[in-house]
Design a protein around this nucleic acid. Structure first.
Lengths: 203, 203, 203, 203
DNA sequence: GATGAATGAGAGTTCATTCAT
DNA sequence: TATGAATGAACTCTCATTCAT
């Protein structure tokens, strides 16, 4: 049964994955509006009916894709997140986020399509987000605990210091502007200093 | 011709506006996905065919609404933008943006639906954005000229110092968190200090 | 407004009727299973979408058709129902029902498709049935009141004395058997005598 | 070959039967419309493809089920059909039919789904019907031969005297009415007297 | 024999758009 | 100008049937 299960899982996973990747690609280029089940089927090289073996309906496909992409983003951004000082860790995440957000990959392009859907920021997504980005959350908590980060809610710290990374990446990707290495480094540093509280030597 | 034109314009404008407001409301509550021409017609109290007298097609309606909403946002945010010191002007805009972004008005709710549409960030929208937010742009340029603001492209300055205002507003509106007055003031101040360069006394 | 309403009603009614007749015809020849909205549209000579202006969905179309056909049957059967003695009235209805049930008209053929649908014998249909066949019901009630009909619930009287009329008609229509006039008259008479109580002369 | 054949037949028959019972149950609760091959497979605990080993296609499954159910009904109704006088035999069948028709068993509920399908009253079904209900047919023939039953075709006799039994049973099952024992007995007796010719003593 | 994943035609339904009034 | 009935292409989803395992 092991052998069979294993093969089964591989096939299962591969076809499911095929469909997710196809949907991701379509959303990346045409937005959620452009996502039709026929198109996904065609892009994935399966029959339309097959999609429904792996996903309950279109909404379910979108939800699962969202979770999948969220995991991709998190894993890309949080690589090596625990190495170094607080500042090093923060800046590494900032830069990885920036570099990830800059590229026009399907995963990244589709990512920003989900964020602003009304009604669809379900608890399930939020809980997953919480779980996946826990290291970032913890980084802020640590800083708060040792008094080296401004006393704000982690989400506010994220808004002030991290969101600019994505915003700038998006602007670059869209060709609104071109930054050189120096500018990025400066922006990253400014973000860090915005929330950092230098320990004042007593004397 | 004047008299007739005037009346005509009024009617024209009122009906066109009726349609835009209806579309705005629908997008605010159901997203762009939920926008159907029949629904707009019903909400606006006109016949479906009438919409096509004022807008070429659905895409045109959305584009025009986008421009309309952008103007609303700009005017709400940039009120009194030229009064006071650089810091006062910056903080006034930051707070207005935050307060505007917090409220669940149709204009605001529909606003974020447009931002991330692929393919549709046309030059036309960008040019309009440029024009409408010119005061903010000028504020940064002034600071750069007098050396009191970090040497970054205005768009980067916006990303670092302004975007957090909207991000926090959105989080509040969605009930992800609650900030009190003090937190907002602190966040606003941190954003300002992130890009501000204090003038060093010469001695 | 009268003029317009009138025209409107005519058009409204004519198109709605066109669709009902098309559906009736299709059900008559292929059963409810064979009823597809595309087919109805084609048969009625309208676009598929048009059906949805007049009927909420397929179920609604079927329900409305059912009501329509029920009314047709009732009016055909109950013509002149109040003329003559109890026996004459009973036998007239019996014969009309028989003659109606014999013919392979779309209305009649589709009629028997609805009767045995599970779950769909809604209160609405039952109430309509009650109302439309009220004269028959009253005929039984009269006979019961004057003691000239067997003391059974009207529905039982219907089952015993009327249903055979339809059953025989169906058998003829399906070519299972051929009756001549004499047989029908005999069967009709037997049905009447089955529920009739002769008034016994006192002496 | 005998031994193997026997086992084979048992298995064959048991699986085939499993499928028929599953289909019967599904039709009983959801009508023929609700019958899908995947549902039958699930209910029967076999794979979808397996059904096609025992039945050519869906139509064949329905046809075979129809025959199966017809046999069930006939055997339930005609039990002990040859015991007693003509009247006793008739009334026994009438009552059995009534009692069978009253119960909401899968077999009975699915039975009435087939009766009114157009196109499908095939000669095969008719021949089987003829064969299965032959005892009832013979009962009528006997009565006709000895002049104690009205001179009508057996099918007409069935319509006049037997069909009411089923019609009343259906009405009870559907909750349209409640009869007590006395009413049923009366109805049964009326049906019998409707076709019975008392032998007139000569002088 | 038995499985059940895969197929794809076809179902019901929606909706942007047109056009006679 | 304004209407809204009508259109029909395109949508999501189901399901009878097949076939490699």
């Amino acid at each position: 049964m092991n052998e069979r299960s294993f093969t089964f899982d591989l096939i299962m996973h591969s076809k499911r994955n095929l469909i997710l990747r196809a949907a991701e690609k379509i959303i990346a280029s045409g937005g959620i509006q452009g996502l039709s089940m026929q198109l996904v089927a065609k892009e994935a090289g399966v029959a339309a009916g097959t999609i429904y073996r792996y996903f309950k309906d279109k909404d379910d496909l979108i939800l699962e894709l969202r979770k999948d992409v969220l995991a991709q983003v998190a894993s890309a951004i949080l690589e090596d997140h625990h190495v170094g000082t607080l500042e090093q860790r923060f800046k590494r995440i900032w830069m990885k986020m920036h570099n990830y957000g800059k590229q026009p990959s399907p995963a990244n392009l589709s990512y920003e399509q989900y964020a602003h859907l009304p009604e669809s920021n379900t608890d399930e997504i939020r809980a997953l987000e919480m779980k996946l980005f826990e290291p970032l959350h913890r980084l802020f908590e640590e800083g708060l605990a040792q008094g080296s980060i401004q006393p704000l809610h982690p989400r506010a710290l994220y808004a002030v210091a991290m969101e600019p990374s994505m915003t700038m990446a998006r602007a670059m990707r869209r060709g609104l502007i071109e930054y050189d290495e120096k500018d990025i480094t400066l922006a990253c540093d400014l973000c860090w200093r915005a929330i950092y509280i230098p320990t004042t030597p007593t004397n």
